[in-house]
Design a protein around this nucleic acid. Structure first.
Lengths: 189, 189, 189, 189
DNA sequence: AATGAATGAGCCTTCATTCAT
DNA sequence: CATGAATGAAGGCTCATTCAT
């Protein structure tokens, strides 16, 4: 929380907004520094390159998203309720960001090189999300077989991802409602 | 089928490969005309702009994808079998394109403006895909209620989209297998 | 001599002046295009990169220099006279260019990477100059041993190069006069 | 010999290596301070500007070069032997620095402005080198005429400079051997 | 002394598009 | 229809230097 950290965070915040709203490639350094009201050299004293900023954006965004999500889910008591409420949280987010989708999936689309740092990072974050769902499923069905739980967790994860991009495609939360209903079925069986 | 059409198609074909492999923004007109071995002016006599080429790419790509898909599904007799085989087809495609995902979802990520032609087009193609699934579900469950069928079709659609982006995220077909198993359950109930 | 050639040549001419007067690194593309009164894109439609222009500059400069030199030496009858007059030509050039030295040696100083295209090119041009001197020496002393002729040609070449950089160092033609006198001795023996 | 002096010398040493290896313009302040492991401000508390560092580099380099040279020549008894051995010293240096040439001549190439401090300094150092040669020639030929001695000294100086840039051009010591042989002739007559 | 964040002009290069031929 | 030269704004990034701490 030193001053240096603050300035860097401010740049990340400004860039996050622009990257998310316009896309990574479509957002230029010039636009970022103008929005952050700093000089070009200042930017490059904080970040080695645009890619580094991109990576920090994703990491920072993931951290914040998890914090908000967990905070939202605190009001729900059981794992089952939490898993279902996850889709309410998703619907809320989709609306709030004008159906811009998921920052990571969007970045994935702009990043074709298979082994690059960006894709590695995204894979890590997505794996983390899957684990989060798996853990809740495990808590909800402690006596089910591993395979069964893995299948259910995977399906819920896929419904969540599918709902994200479908909401983005159609600019409405309808798909997320469908996903929520399906998740209720998956957890009821 | 005139010469003009052939030439235009050739450009679209070349551009399709590049757009899909590298992304829309990351692919320049220069690269396209060099790969197609034509002059700049020739390109602009066939396409008003890069965006127009992008739109034709999506349309052409969607048409081809549907043709291939339907051809692949012909070998399966029942709607249920077709719906399940759809995920085998998806897995094959994911591997073949090195997990580059869906051209339309990728384009969506690069296209933030809500009402632009690109997004309208993508919405149309995605709606078409959902309809295709809905129709098969209707055939499979002619006696189910509208709501029930709509829910099942929607869930299958979401699993398909989710499997696409998950396979892209993790560079493996595992998520598609999960989706396939889940679809079998949805159609068995 | 098409229009295209003319335009490219014009750029090379403008750049030659600037590169020679200011140095290669110290001359920016912006300055070149402003002096040539063309747009940036135009420049890059003629040259792949600044380095390519640099290479063409050296090649073009070498060609022109040889032409002028040979034209100047035509008035002299014997190989010996030509070799001596070479230093008058050099003195004239040194004065005319305000003792800026040799474009190639200057470029060499700005190009440390041993195997790069620039150094290869420069080595070729310098080898050509040495050969030119050697041939005249051979004509002058047809009966001398190979070793002897090689030594004399080499020494004359070194005196020429030394005179160039010394004139550049001291901003006067004195060193070239010294070299000329020494060459006369070398050829008289 | 205070701490300050040491720190300054350390910067000069680090910069010397980089300037010589990469060229003056091609070496940035950032690279120098990183290699010297100091802060930007520290650099500018020791040097008014990059140019000042450049000037100190040349001066320091000249001083060191003379010391090494004189130390090397101590083992030789007569002025004639010293003058000839000078070219062995030169060959050794050319090899050791990967044929990067003479720091001063390289700097000259990057410094077109005729009256600037850098050129004045270089002129001084080169004049010093010529004087050093002249003195040895005078000792070797105390009875020759002034003109004769001046011509011989000048020729040896030119052969030395020519050998330097030729070795740099061709990345071999051959030219220095040629120069040495020629110097032997000049001193034998 | 020493620090390193900040500056903003400048670097080389690519962009999508136009238009005279 | 086809050509490819021309445009100039924008791309990501580095430069030498200053200055408050």
């Amino acid at each position: 929380m030193t001053e240096k950290t603050n300035r860097k965070c401010q740049i990340i915040e400004v860039a996050s907004k622009l990257f998310f709203e316009q896309g990574y490639h479509a957002t230029g350094i010039k636009q970022i520094i103008e929005a952050a009201d700093i000089a070009k050299g200042t930017f490059y004293s904080h970040f080695k390159s645009k890619e580094e900023l991109g990576l920090e954006w994703l990491e920072c965004g993931n951290r914040k998203w998890k914090t908000c999500r967990d905070s939202f889910l605190e009001q729900f008591a059981t794992p089952k309720e939490k898993l279902i409420a996850l889709f309410d949280y998703q619907a809320k987010g989709a609306e709030e960001c004008s159906y811009r989708g998921c920052a990571m999936l969007n970045m994935l689309a702009e990043t074709p090189e298979l082994g690059c740092p960006m894709r590695k990072a995204i894979r890590g974050y997505k794996k983390g999300y899957l684990c989060f769902i798996r853990e809740l499923v495990n808590q909800h069905l402690p006596d089910a077989s591993d395979d069964d739980r893995e299948q259910r967790a995977g399906a819920i994860y896929l419904l969540s991802e599918g709902a994200t991009v479908a909401a983005q495609s159609f600019c409405k939360t309808g798909p997320i409602d469908i996903a929520k209903v399906q998740v209720e079925k998956i957890l009821a069986e």
